[in-house]
Amino acid sequence: MTLTGLYVPLITPFDESGGIAFDALETLAHQILDGGARGLVALGTTAEPSALTEHERESVLKIATQACQAHDAQLLVGANSPQALDDLRERPEVTAALTLVPPFIRPGEAGAAAYLTQLAATSPVPIVIYHVPYRTGQPLSAATIQDLAAVDNIKGIKYAQGGIDEETITLMADLPPDFAVLAGDDPYISPMLALGAHGGILASALVVPTQFATLIDAWLTNDVVQAREPGHRLGNLSQALFAEPNPTVIKAVLHARGTIPTPAVRPPLLQADPTSATRAIEKLTRLV
């Protein structure tokens, strides 16, 4: 299994009645893959999975699966517990699970690593670790990530460290073989690719998938000249899209463009302030 290129975490669009806008979700999934994405992420945090019913999650996963099959694309699925991983056992179409470092508990690096190793041992699909310490409260050092990379069935990491720090440099300077580092902080996608990341899992690409796919391809083919200037502009756009809790601004922009029927989110999220959407749209108009 090779994980390279652009992966886009799907939102869950809602209609005027508050239900899932399934047609809009299906159209969006195909647009993203037509735009050059290597794959989709279903039921990641961008999809507001904790606010969905079991039936809704099943329906979202079905749409994502069918879109990926139609495009011969890869499918990652958010799964953070032994039960959620086991539920993927009868889904051969799933490429890997995107599995969060255990949040809130803060078990320490050794505890987090032991838990992820245990999950990998029983998971029916490969695991991509979701490392986002400013949300989970549990950082992982470069050394711990490198140890986890040696574990059978752990095949990569969504790396959302919150910036480019010393641990990032240490990790990227000595990348484990056959282990994919997928950048997960959208504004930093270009510098992460410059350091050697294999691709990205980027919610910002819901808005402009082709531009992000092209940017990643440029870095992966060492075309620095073609990568530098778009990287600056896309990083600037991403900052605007993440000015409020994800995916509120992204949904507002997609609604303004007519891609989804409403900008609605479910509690505990609140809809983005109109000024945030306006700023993001202004930056978007400079790209398209």
Rank of each mutant, 00 (worst) to 15 (best):
F14Q: 03
D15A: 10
E16Q: 13
S17Y: 07
I20Y: 01
I20Q: 01
A21V: 02
A21E: 04
A21N: 05
F22M: 07
F22R: 13
A24K: 03
L25H: 03
E26Q: 15
E26V: 01
E26M: 04
T27W: 00
T27F: 00
L28R: 00
L28Q: 13
A29L: 09
A29G: 02
H30Y: 08
H30W: 07
Q31Y: 08
L33N: 11
L33V: 11
D34G: 08
G35F: 05
G35Q: 03
A37L: 14
A37F: 09
R38V: 13
R38P: 00
G39E: 13
V41H: 09
G44T: 10
G44K: 11
T46S: 14
T46D: 04
P49V: 12
P49E: 07
P49I: 12
A51L: 01
A51T: 14
T53L: 10
E54Y: 04
E54S: 12
R57Q: 14
R57G: 04
E58P: 00
S59C: 07
I63G: 03
A64Q: 09
T65F: 11
T65P: 07
T65W: 14
A67L: 12
Q69S: 12
A70M: 04
H71N: 05
H71L: 10
D72C: 08
Q74Y: 04
Q74D: 08
Q74S: 11
L75E: 05
L75R: 01
L75Q: 02
L75D: 07
L76Q: 04
V77I: 13
V77L: 06
V77G: 01
A79K: 01
S81K: 01
L85T: 08
L85Y: 01
D86C: 00
